[in-house]
Design a protein around this nucleic acid. Structure first.
Lengths: 213, 213
DNA sequence: CGTACTTTTGAATCGCATCAAATCTGGTGG
DNA sequence: CCACCAGATTTGATGCGATTCAAAAGTACG
């Protein structure tokens, strides 16, 4: 199994050999609620959701992952508390939970890296929450470029439709917002790249929204 | 300093003596964005929010904490990436960051417990993100009760206005939504409690997911 | 009591979701 | 090489739900 660079540096060598790749078709289940966690799933491509059946019988989505671990929490629970569903055809790396938890006990360096990873994840998720709390698509897009981008450039890896889902808006609305932003010379669109033109260091000349609170 | 049970079991003995208690008045700031993390704050009572100033000067709530650590990520960062504000009079335990990071290197058992805690936090934040991705206030409220509540009951400790901030909506809209939900017999409101009433299986195609690829 | 805050209701407006449909794109097979 | 298809991108029209601004009623507290 050829691990992606990120996993290779994160996981200790002894664990590498126990990792296997897997492909899931659309709507396949990676695991089911109630099962004992055996693998940690690292999503390489496609998309996986964690869902649970709500009190009213509807399915509640707990999480969507396109890249990275699906269920870091499976380390600490005896049973899954939700289902994992491949929303599209999905490629993953399966890492045995047992190997990880053993290594965490034996390898302090690995523990440190794992803590780093989780801390980054926390920080990243906080930014994501902040973005999702913004009420306009425009703000979310600009915030995305400012916080996730590098030097005012944000790479759009998986298409705008997918980006729309991440921003919590419909793709139509995102298309329109991007078109408007480009028209106003606030951003530039290349293939696979969103670029912010002028940082918003001027006064709120364009601002039509008020300061709340 | 008398530590609460949870902290006592989480933190290694050598750290205990370096912990101190502190009281903050309403609207006091525990730390400011940009400052170098010196303490980790564990909330005992009251309420602390992590906030950032949005693009237009409005305050965006990243997280609310009523019990537990406020900023786990401060271990690995040189500067805070948000402010911490006491929403009401708040009692905390201050744990020196230095003592923790030293202990993490020396005490594998503590590392494991720390990993457990971070994993919980990740899980919790994922739920928050998922909730903020929902387009209607109604869905967010129901999701909140389902995921954060216990047996269909969710305690509203600090008022609905504060809750509205956490849900990323205006308080007026939240009041209206709650009133409507109660009118439809979907929830019941007591003082300091939101309770979900009968599971309604008659229209389970409503909240169903709709994921774009 | 008065003050400050939360809770509540009202009305107008606006942004986004929704539904629809047209173009564009890459990939597949005849 | 072209026909064809599935998916992404784009534009249009419409309605809903949340924001916004406003104000009244309830509540806690010194």
């Amino acid at each position: 199994m050829v691990l992606p660079p990120h996993l290779k540096t994160l996981l200790p060598k002894p664990v590498h050999d126990f990792c296997t790749g897997a492909l899931y078709k659309k709507l396949d289940r990676l695991f089911l609620i109630g099962q004992e966690p055996e693998w940690m799933f690292y999503v390489l491509s496609g998309e996986v959701t964690l869902e649970r059946t709500g009190l009213r019988g509807e399915s509640v989505i707990l999480q969507r992952t396109r890249l990275g671990f699906v269920s870091e929490a499976s380390l600490q629970v005896a049973k899954y508390h939700c289902d994992a569903v491949a929303i599209s055809d999905t490629q993953v790396v399966k890492v045995p939970v047992k190997a990880i938890s053993e290594s965490l006990k034996l390898d302090p360096e690995f523990s440190n890296r794992w803590i780093q990873m989780l801390s980054s994840e926390v920080k990243h998720l906080r930014l994501h929450c902040e973005r999702l709390s913004m009420k306009s698509i425009r703000d979310r897009v600009l915030h995305l470029i400012q916080t996730e981008g590098t030097g005012g450039k944000y790479p759009v890896m998986t298409g705008l439709k997918s980006l729309a889902g991440e921003l919590g808006v419909t793709h139509e609305a995102l298309y329109r917002t991007l078109a408007a932003l480009e028209k106003e010379q606030l951003i530039k669109r290349s293939s696979g790249l969103l670029e912010m033109k002028r940082p918003d260091n001027s006064k709120e000349n364009n601002g039509h929204r008020k300061i709340s609170n």
